[in-house]
Amino acid sequence: MTDEDRLLPIANVGRLMKQILPSNAKISKEAKQTVQECATEFISFVTCEASEKCHRENRKTVNGDDIWWALSTLGLDNYADAVGRHLHKYREAERERTEHNKGSNDSGNEKETNTRSDVQNQSTKFIRVVEKGSSSSAR
């Protein structure tokens, strides 16, 4: 594994930085690299907080609520608010896709309500949805 592989792509970081800045602003190469490393560290740190919560609750799968909770714990309230809305939209999109697949495949799955208590079931279902494709999200 090379150094480049363990960081987020610097082109994506640079593009994002430009989006938020005025057109006359410039960014030095070293600044991009520093933000790239900070962003990678951000992901590792949030992941660590989320996985600790999973272990405390005797769960094996890190899900979206754990990510949301980790952001709140770290004091990143603005991020948590936006991620909460994003999670809601994501699950709506997944439910629509699942229903579409169910309609076309004519399977007999029972309907699930979208309540907090079903979070674990949803996580399991999401893994299976991904599993049907070529890639796997479980290690």
Partner: peptide, 23 residues
């Protein structure tokens, strides 16, 4: 050990916000 499909999705969005915030 295991990661739900939604988790990296949300982290991607959070990381975008982080990069823009820091920038």
């Amino acid at each position: 050990s295991m990661i739900a499909a939604e988790a990296p999705n949300l982290l991607s969005k959070a990381c975008e916000m982080f990069v823009m915030d820091l920038t």
